[in-house]
Amino acid sequence: MNSSVTPFDFQGCLAACARGDRSALQALYDHEGSRLLGVVRRIVRDDAMAEDIVHDAFIRIWTRATSFDATRGSARGWIYSINRHLALNAVRDSRQETTLDDADIVTLVGEFDEGAIWSGSAKIYRCLEQLQPAPQRCVLHAYVDGCSHAEIASLMGAPLGTVKAWIKRSLEALRECMT
C-alpha cells in the first residue's frame, strides 16, 4: 500500500485553499481522502465516527489553510496531523481505557512482523527495525492503532509500567537514530 503515489502539490493546494479556492480542497479530498480516512478509521475503529472526523478535519484544513507555516513542516504532514489529532482527541475523550476488543485490532502482531511492511523507504522504518520487537510493537500500536498505554499493556500482556518504559526508550532511540 505504499509508494507509487502520483506527486500531488500539497503546499500549493493549501495556498489555493487559503485563497478561497474550493476546487483545491476537493482535489485534496479526491487525492488523499481514502488514505486519510484509512488512518482515522484505524484509530477510531468505527466507520461513521471516522467519516465525522475526516469531515471536521477538512473543515479545519479549509479554515486554517492561511495559518499553515511551511517553516514548521510539510503541508502533507500538517494535513495528516490535523486528521490524526482529531481522531486521537475523539478516542481519548470517549473510549474507556482497557476496554479493548482484540478482534478490533486487525491481527496486528502478524502484520507488523511481516518483513513486507518495512519495504517503505522512509528512514523511520529502518530505525524501527533496530528496536526490540516488543517496544517496536508498542510504537506501532500507539501511532497506527491509536492505543493508549493501558490498551497496549492489555494487548501485549505486559505490565503498564513496562509498556510506558518501552515507549519512552523507543522514542529516545528513534530520535537518536533519525537525527
Binding site: 500500500m1 484509512g38 488512518v39 484505524r42 513542516g73 502533507r76 523511520i124 522504518y125 506501532l140 497506527v144
Partner: peptide
Amino acid sequence: WEARLLELTTLAEPQRPSTRLWRRID
C-alpha cells in the same frame, strides 16, 4: 516528531469514503 513518524501513516489501509462525505464537507 510529526515529521519523523509521518510515514507510519502508510501502514493504515486506505478506506474509500462513502459518497456522502464530500457532499457533507462541501
